[in-house]
Amino acid sequence: MMDTPIRHLSPLLPHAGDMILLDEICSYSDDRLQAVTRIGPDHLFLDENGQLPMWVSVEIMAQAIAALAGCHAHDAGEPVKLGFLLGSRHVDILRPSVAQGSLLRVDVTASTRDQASGFGVFDCVLSLLNDTCDDSQDEGQGEPLVNARLSVFSPPDLDHYLQEQTT
């Protein structure tokens, strides 16, 4: 298991450059991950008023799920695999946007995971924080912004899966 916090996330995600929306992994375990992101002035999804719309939270949550898979792959000595966001059974947006400079924490917890098929369902919470990752920032702290339950899929053999989809 890697030491946390983890600040260099590109080896753990199938994303690159500005599309990596997470700044730091605070902690992870078998079925949970906690990460933070600070909304900087050059954030890819800021609107014309310097606000981050909360529809972006679904991508932030999906990246946290991907980061958990990336941590597990790293721990097992395997390459990071591509995954797909299938959809959501529930998204509850409690606030429409947050300002540039905001610090957000995302908590993801696997509620259902089938390694053989690559299918999973995760309970996710995005919160507004006052401080960075530390042990005092439990999941219950911070102002909740979005609650969601996301369904994801990461096929065990991506090449075979993609070939099947085209025939």
Rank of each mutant, 00 (worst) to 15 (best):
M2F: 07
P5R: 00
R7P: 01
H8E: 14
L9F: 01
L9E: 00
S10I: 03
S10V: 08
L12C: 04
P14S: 11
H15F: 14
D23H: 13
I25M: 00
S27I: 04
S29D: 15
S29R: 02
L33Q: 04
V36E: 01
T37P: 02
G40D: 15
D42K: 09
H43L: 02
F45S: 13
L46M: 08
L46I: 10
E48P: 00
N49V: 03
Q51S: 10
P53D: 15
I60S: 04
M61P: 01
M61L: 10
A62Y: 02
Q63P: 05
Q63A: 08
Q63C: 05
Q63D: 09
A64G: 10
I65L: 08
G70K: 01
C71M: 10
H72V: 08
H72T: 11
D75Y: 07
A76W: 01
G77I: 09
P79K: 05
L82E: 14
L82D: 13
F84S: 09
L85K: 02
L86I: 11
G87C: 07
R89K: 13
V91P: 03
I93W: 03
I93Q: 10
L94E: 10
P96R: 14
V98R: 07
Q100N: 12
Q100H: 06
G101T: 13
S102C: 10
S102F: 03
L103Q: 11
L103W: 00
R105H: 10
V106C: 07
V106S: 00
D107Q: 05
A110R: 14
S111W: 00
T112C: 09
D114P: 00
D114T: 13
D114I: 05
A116R: 15
F119Y: 12
F119I: 10
F119K: 05
D123C: 02
V125Q: 15
L128A: 04
L129V: 11
D131Y: 02
T132S: 14
T132I: 12
D135S: 13
Q137C: 11
D138I: 09
E139I: 13
E143H: 02
V146E: 05
V146H: 04
A148S: 14
R149F: 01
S151H: 04
S154G: 15
P155A: 14
D157T: 08
D157G: 07
D157M: 03
H160P: 00
L162A: 12
Q163N: 15
